[in-house]
């Protein structure tokens, strides 16, 4: 299972520290372990393959989500947070 900061991808704009901080915030909000959140979000992006192959999330540069700066990892974290509410 891949950690979010170990995943390979090209359109990353955020630093690993920013990613880790965002994961920790989300984990605290969701009452989950950060490692678990990191794994789930990585899986959203790579479906177990170790590299980003979900352009449906990764490239969703809608421009309307100022929180993610279009970094696919932060976009995927948003997807995971919303998924937990559904």
């Amino acid at each position: 299972m891949t950690k979010l900061t170990d995943i390979e991808g090209t359109d990353f704009t955020a630093s690993d520290e920013e990613i880790e901080a965002a994961v920790e915030d989300a984990a605290a909000d969701l009452g989950m372990a950060p490692e678990r959140v990191s794994e789930e979000v990585a899986y959203i992006l790579d479906s177990g393959s170790g590299r980003v192959n979900n352009e449906g999330v990764a490239g969703a540069a809608v421009g309307s989500n100022a929180d993610t700066h279009d970094d696919p990892r932060l976009e995927a974290l948003d997807v995971f947070k919303l998924r937990q509410e559904l």
Binding site: I44, D46, S47, G48, G56, V57, A60, V62, S64, E75
Partner: peptide, 22 residues
């Protein structure tokens, strides 16, 4: 989406494409 940002549609696509990856 850049020209025509349909928010709900994009959310649906995000979930669907995640499932499709598997």
């Amino acid at each position: 989406m850049q020209e025509a940002p349909l928010t709900l549609l994009n959310k649906g696509f995000q979930f669907i494409s995640t499932d499709e990856g598997r």
